[in-house]
Amino acid sequence: MNPEPLFRIRNLKVEFNGRGEIFHIPQLEILPKDRIAIMGPNGSGKTTFLKTLSGLLEVPSGTIFYKGAPLRVHRRKLTQEVTYVHQHPYLFRGSVYRNLLVGLHSATLTPKEKKHHIQIILERIGLSGYEERDTRELSGGEAYRVALARALLKEPQVLLLDEPTAQADQEAKRIITEALKQVTHKGNTTLIFATHDESLCRNLEVRILRIEEFSLCRY
C-alpha cells in the first residue's frame, strides 16, 4: 500500500517574477522520505515553488494539500515541520554558535547538551571550531553550510533547499552531499531542492522534476 502523500498539488499556478509569468504544476504528489530535485533554467520559478511549499508565499491559484489538509489550515504545523534554506541565507548577527542555537530553540536540552549537538553538527558540515566565528566573516559557501546546519538542528520532516551547492567548492560540495545523504537515507527527512548540479542529483539518487516553459513537464 502506498503511503499517504506529504504534499498533494493540484493545478498550481504561481506568478513568480512580477512580469506576469505563471509557473504551472498540473499535478504532483510528494511522498514521505522522497528526495526530489527541481531543475530548470534561471528564473523559471524554482525558488517561488519552494517558498510556496514552505508556506512563505500564499497559494494564489490551485491547491496544495499538506498531510491531507490545505496548506493554510496547517500553517502552524508547517512552520514546525518544514524548513526552507535560501540560496543566499540570512545569518543572524553574532557568532555561528548563536545562530545554531536558534535552530535548537524548541528542544528542551541543557546548555551542555546543546553545545554537544552544535559541535556534532559543525563537525558534520566541516566547520569544526567555527563556534565563535562572527557570521559576517564567513564566505558564501560557509554561510550556506551554517544555515544548513541550523536547519538540520531543527530536525524538520521536510527540508527545502535553494541551490545548496551553488556557492560551494568541491570539498564543500562533498560535505553537503554527505550531510544530506545522512538525513535522507538514514533519517526520515523528505528533501526537496532546486539545483543545476547534476552530480548532486546523482549522488543523492533523487527524483528529478524538470521545469520547461514555466511548467513542470517531466518527472
Partner: peptide, 19 residues
C-alpha cells in the same frame, strides 16, 4: 530574508521578538 528565516525555523514568539 530575516523574517522568512525566523518563520521557517519555527521560532516561538519570544525568540522572534528577541531576534
Amino acid at each position: 530574508r530575516f523574517f522568512e528565516t525566523i518563520h521557517t525555523l519555527g521560532c516561538s514568539f519570544s525568540t522572534k521578538c528577541f531576534l
